[in-house]
């Protein structure tokens, strides 16, 4: 036929996770996994990747689910779409900041097709969903030919578009921890337009018990090759009463974190991004603390 945007590849439809693992393993780097296609096909069209084998996993039963609640934690199956996330009452009611990060993705079609797991597996440090999941302390379940692994998201990324996934491995689900009493979360980002990847994004989780911040997790995206945790800022808040001056100090610490090493590119400048880490962190912390201290 006249037009074909993709180059030929060998196409497989996996019936089980283990079948997918085997095809992926035996083809090594030549193989790619297909779920939503929203990142794979643009990359193929742009020549960024040229898989010779594609394994469609949408044919595997039992991977499209979102289950749980804030007391038990949330489990997101690898075929749950972004739209499933947007529609999930558990996600919307109990994990509002994750809902915020998903629902602000502009394209309904992309949300219909793209999976939550696919979004975070792409490995772009600008992923809004990955940033908030990092703040939430999410882990991913990795299934390969060997033992299953459960890895925290903040150790999952190696570099831009590089993760710890080995040939033959895939994520089968995301495990989001429960949110004990006093826990609040917030997600904020800045982008050129509503449809553009973030210039900077920030996800925050805080837990306040008896007026004292018992836990703080701050994740920052698009300021380094991988999503980072602003650990100094977290430490500043830990065990303290969340006053505005303390929050301001923590936000500055987030900005000055050595992990924050943004670049200048078509979307923004390094200086702007760095500065916005402070503004967004402060605003996100205000959001979580104000709501709790209210």
């Amino acid at each position: 036929m006249l037009f074909r945007a993709l180059s030929p590849f060998s196409y497989w439809e996996a019936k089980s996770i283990s079948e997918a693992n085997e095809i992926l393993f035996s083809n090594g780097k030549k193989a790619a996994l297909l779920a939503g296609g929203c990142s794979l096909f643009p990359q193929m069209k742009n020549g960024l990747t040229k898989p010779e084998v594609i394994v469609n996993i949408t044919t595997i039963e039992g991977l499209r689910f979102i289950e749980g609640n804030r007391d038990e934690g949330l489990r997101i199956g690898s075929l749950a779409t972004l739209r499933d996330g947007e529609k999930s009452p558990a996600l919307r009611q109990d994990y509002g900041s994750l809902f915020d990060a998903i629902t602000q993705i502009a394209s309904v079609q992309v949300k219909n097709m793209g999976t939550i797991v696919g979004n975070i597996t792409e490995g772009t440090p600008a992923s809004d969903v990955a940033t908030i999941l990092t703040a939430l302390g999410a882990k991913v379940k990795i299934v390969g030919l060997g033992e299953d692994k459960i890895v925290p998201l903040d150790s999952f990324y190696v570099h831009v578009r590089k993760t710890i996934l080995e040939p033959g491995e895939m994520i089968t689900e995301i495990l989001v921890p429960p949110l004990p009493d006093g826990t609040r979360t917030a997600f904020l980002n800045l982008a050129k337009t509503k449809e553009d990847p973030a210039k900077v994004n920030v996800g925050v989780l805080t837990r306040v018990v008896d007026g004292v911040c018992e836990e703080a997790r701050i994740a920052v995206g698009a300021v380094a090759p991988v999503i980072i945790r602003a650990k100094k800022a977290e430490a500043i808040l830990q065990g303290e009463k969340p006053e505005p001056s303390l929050i301001a100090k923590a936000a500055e610490a987030a900005r000055d974190d050595k992990g924050v090493r943004p670049i200048t590119d078509i979307r923004s400048t390094a200086a702007y991004r760095k500065e916005m880490v402070e503004v967004l962190t402060r605003r996100a912390l205000h959001k979580t603390f104000q709501i709790t201290t209210h």
Binding site: Y11, G37, F41, V108, Q109, N112, M113
Partner: peptide, 13 residues
């Protein structure tokens, strides 16, 4: 019944 992008959908799938 669901809106998708046909330019990013593999026909075989």
């Amino acid at each position: 019944g669901v809106a998708v992008l046909s330019c990013l959908t593999l026909a075989a799938a």
